[in-house]
Design a protein around this nucleic acid. Structure first.
Length: 360
DNA sequence: AACTGAGCCAACCGCCGAGAC
DNA sequence: AGTCTCGGCGGTTGGCTCAGT
């Protein structure tokens, strides 16, 4: 039953690689290419585990790898990508030619994390420590603000805190009530805020990670992107591209202003991300974007991007308040979208959500 | 010169999904 | 259907280097 073991783990060499061993792998790959790594040690005459050979090749011997120090541009890109997606090193590394996930991870852990800390920025949330302390104080003082939300809030507690990334703000910053992350995002979506969104004009579901950078999440988003996403993302791309001024955490839950310049432009803009993933390798699936292009207009499209057990959605509400276009069914469409998402979540997490996740 | 601790990074560990058997 | 390996991933660790004392 099953395959035979790839190697005798107790009888293979471990530890640092010698130049001779490296030469054997290089010679083998140049002669036979990359194939079944479990066969490589035997064919190449190495007393190593195939997995170890693969790691040595991918992290060190591959000819297109850079071995010099990181440039300031690479550093900035890593910080921005980490800010946007966290410690998904392989995805970050794919955006930096010649760098491996191990390189990026080590550089982050040894340099960038400390650098951010010294700058007074929390390397996990990318928020200033002062703001985190402030948020904590506000959160701890709001124990009684949850009563009106009933079962919704109870359910949200099932979302693992470490897997929740919420970015967002109320359309009207004056109505902002600071609460714990998971609770707040559902408030944003589900209750009085929906009623107060008197002018959603365009509601699009976009693929967040294609928005962050083309091809960036091509693996995770290969199947279900529709045309409705591509025409919307263009306007928002400038905000989200890692190399741009996009700052994911400028949208964070307690942030009264969704992005720099919010007040000056009088935009009505909301963006939120819910990440609930039980699988660390599953990427976020869906981004919902709502543009307030006018007071009364709303168009809504949806792309669902599902994978594994995870569920992730982002909401981006933006636009100018002084434009006008169409619509009457905007709120209905939006509510339908939320209900659809609710149904999807029920299907995915029946034990958690069943019977107690009534938004309306 | 010898010791110590911090910094660094290559390599390992353990988990997961996909697929072989 | 069940068990196992493979390949990929993120987290962790062992050991080397170097600056400071």
């Amino acid at each position: 039953m099953g395959r035979p073991p790839c190697c005798d783990k107790s009888n293979v060499k471990r530890g640092l690689w010698t130049a001779e061993e490296d030469a054997k792998i290089l010679a083998h790959v140049s002669n036979h290419g990359i194939g079944n790594w479990t066969l490589v040690p035997r064919k190449a005459g190495l007393n190593r585990c195939g997995k170890s050979c693969r790691l040595r090749w991918t992290n060190y011997l591959k000819p297109d790898l850079k071995h010099d120090s990181f440039t300031p541009q690479e550093e900035e890109l890593i910080i921005n990508l980490h800010k946007a997606i966290g410690s998904r090193w392989s995805l970050i590394a794919k955006q930096i030619p010649g760098r491996t996930d191990n390189d990026v991870k080590n550089y982050w852990n040894t340099k960038l994390r400390k650098k951010l800390s010294k700058m007074g920025i929390d390397p996990v949330t990318h928020k200033p420590f002062s703001q985190i302390l402030s948020d904590y104080g506000n959160i701890s003082g709001l124990q009684n603000s949850t009563g009106s939300h009933g079962s919704l809030n109870k359910n949200i507690n099932y979302v693992e805190p470490s897997s929740v990334l919420l970015t967002g703000s109320f359309p009207n910053p004056d109505t902002m009530i600071r609460r714990p992350k998971a609770e707040q995002v559902y408030d944003n979506i589900s209750n009085e805020n929906i009623a107060s969104w008197d002018c959603p004009s365009q509601f699009h579901v976009i693929n967040q990670f294609e928005t962050i950078q083309p091809q960036f999440f091509s693996e995770a988003t290969s199947s279900s992107c529709s045309s409705s996403s591509s025409n919307v993302t263009q306007s928002s791309q400038a905000q989200i591209l890692p190399s741009s001024s996009f700052n994911c955490n400028e949208f964070l839950l307690s942030d009264p202003l969704p992005f720099p310049g919010f007040q000056q432009h009088q935009d009505r803009h909301f963006q939120g991300v819910i990440m609930s993933s039980t699988n660390s390798s599953t990427l976020a699936q869906t981004v919902l974007q709502l543009d307030f292009a006018s007071e009364n207009d709303c168009a809504f499209n949806q792309i669902s991007q599902e994978g594994g057990l995870g569920l992730e959605s982002a909401f981006d509400f933006g636009g100018q308040t002084n434009q006008r276009s169409e619509t009457s069914s905007s709120m209905t469409s939006f509510v339908d979208a939320i209900l659809d998402k609710d149904s999807e979540m029920r299907a995915e997490f029946p034990d958690i959500l069943d019977g107690s996740f009534d938004l309306f």
